[in-house]
Design a protein around this nucleic acid. Sequence first.
DNA 1: CGGCTCATTGAATCAAATG
DNA 2: ACATTTGATTCAATGAGCC
Lengths: 369, 369
Amino acid sequence: MAETAVAERLNGALNRILAGDCIEVMRRLPDASVDLVFADPPYNLQLKGELHRPDNSRVNGVEEGWDRFSSFGDYDRFTREWLREAQRVLKPHGAIWVIGSYHNIFRLGAELQNQGFWILNDVVWRKSNPMPNFRGKRLTNAHETLIWASKAEASKYTFNYDALKALNEGVQMRSDWVLPICTGHERLKGEDGAKAHPTQKPESLLHRIILATTNPGDVVLDPFFGTGTTGAVAKRLGRDFIGIEREDSYRKAAEARIAQIRRLDSVALETTSSKKAEPRVAFGVLVERGMLRPGEELWSLGGRHKAKVRADGTLVGQDVKGSIHQVGAHLEGAPSCNGWTYWHFRRDGGYVPIDVLRQQVRAEMAQHH
Amino acid sequence: MAETAVAERLNGALNRILAGDCIEVMRRLPDASVDLVFADPPYNLQLKGELHRPDNSRVNGVEEGWDRFSSFGDYDRFTREWLREAQRVLKPHGAIWVIGSYHNIFRLGAELQNQGFWILNDVVWRKSNPMPNFRGKRLTNAHETLIWASKAEASKYTFNYDALKALNEGVQMRSDWVLPICTGHERLKGEDGAKAHPTQKPESLLHRIILATTNPGDVVLDPFFGTGTTGAVAKRLGRDFIGIEREDSYRKAAEARIAQIRRLDSVALETTSSKKAEPRVAFGVLVERGMLRPGEELWSLGGRHKAKVRADGTLVGQDVKGSIHQVGAHLEGAPSCNGWTYWHFRRDGGYVPIDVLRQQVRAEMAQHH
DNA sequence: CGGCTCATTGAATCAAATG
DNA sequence: ACATTTGATTCAATGAGCC
């Protein structure tokens, strides 16, 4: 059957590094099959001569052939083609991350928008230890830019809000991330001691991206796999990956690297991923259980509005009947209202939010499991 | 003579706010006549409905007609036209700054490159107090992006490296700037108390830009003048400005605002623009003068970290040697550290910041002038 | 349906100190 | 005792827009 063939085509690629040009290799992947694309394409650095430090030592920059394009138009064509394939292989609710510097990120972002991707955030990776500007002719180039976009405007993309909030000491994560560049033991070296890849990204960066925008078991495609940071982090976090890389030496280094990675056990994965949504409790359950009596009055904070509880778990207030949310919204003239925090019952002269009753129910439910 | 006519056309516009559409007005300005363009064009926010805070209050966002475009193509055409005029009126060694968010900055940057501007840096304005993400559906959009580009690749652009280094506590200025958004008394209000402009930029941002990339007497053109932050800062810093603004209410607010600004006197200008501003005091001077002894210990506040003073004005701490700033940053695992405020010496059982010693040296230096 | 917000400013309120 | 000032604390508002 066709479906089986498609599944096999995908499964054959899972957790492997496919050799070849990323556009050609992506063409062989089935439609709507991956959850996330992470792409670190060539930056089109347009370097002129060599750069030396003030002590005259030579800066070992990006000089590889894969970063040479003849013009902006040439780079745009390349971008357009690989983005088109990336969009095709994404599931309807999938998303993409791209990273770049001022040399290429504007072209990349514009092309994403042109192809119908819907930008969700641009994120600044603020390097805690950037290379200084030796010549004193510009500002220290201390950041790179990432763009996070869903496949389309209507996509219900994945965002593990609570996991990121936890990562950020309890306040919501911002669009600027301070992370060190990849150095030390994490930086892959060749047998000659030289760095294996000129632009290896830190695992901390991929950790945050994969944690934020995928779930365990999701498939992450990296069409510019390099030495495999995406694969290493995906494997550790219990995600599947598909890598595409043209250069033999990078593939080899990546394979050795990823083979040594161990998947975190499910407990560790659970704690790093978002807190499970708490079980839904219908307001009517509070009435069924006798925690609130039919006919009892609920109050908005301060007692400005009131409504009466009915046996079926709806409320009736001034000129309005409906759910706790609907009645609250109507009385406030608001577009919406969280009835759980809006409505209060009276105890000992004070107002207690009905949400505490829901907490009790949830606690009891947890006991029985 | 033709030259005189051109000079008159320019002089007639200096330190004035020209009314009208920026493209049409720029067409009347002579070629190669301004040193810097600062442009804060509409962001093309593509807003859908209203946004409410969790407490149901409504966010008063950008609803003005000037931010509405029918498509990306429409926005691109607009961008192309005003950028073309901006480039024409720039002197050969002139430069441009543009600011935007992820909604428009990629299109803006790509068009800059297409027209032959040469990008020097992209700069991230990290907002210290951004609006949070109320829905918990994305990252807090906590930054905006600026692009600094010269008129052409060959332009010998202005960059006051030392002034920016001085502004940044003696280490070279990075491409990420932390500045608060424009609030409080600085935010212009109408007679009804409502904000006069929905997107007024902070003066601190323009101060840094104008200080960094112009010299006193230079001409700064702002084609989207709004309520005149560019003009206010330019005037204060002894630069000339040309503003262009379509909306009467913004022009009026800007004129009243700028009329109240006083140009800094030449001494203050000198101090803001040169590294001699606050006379730089090397830490080693404190050792030379016997205010601190080699071998003496310095402490972080609370005494969590310590380091030893060496005779050459460097510190040595746990596994690290270097300047007071470097050692502090290393021990804190921070990207940077102001050693003057970080390090303390012990006196009478308390911690005294070494900055007080620097103040003493500066006071003594002032005596001799 | 119902879950979801951070840093800052400035006003309002109240307590303590002063004249 | 009463009016005034100062300081501490709390409360309310809001900023280039997001299911």
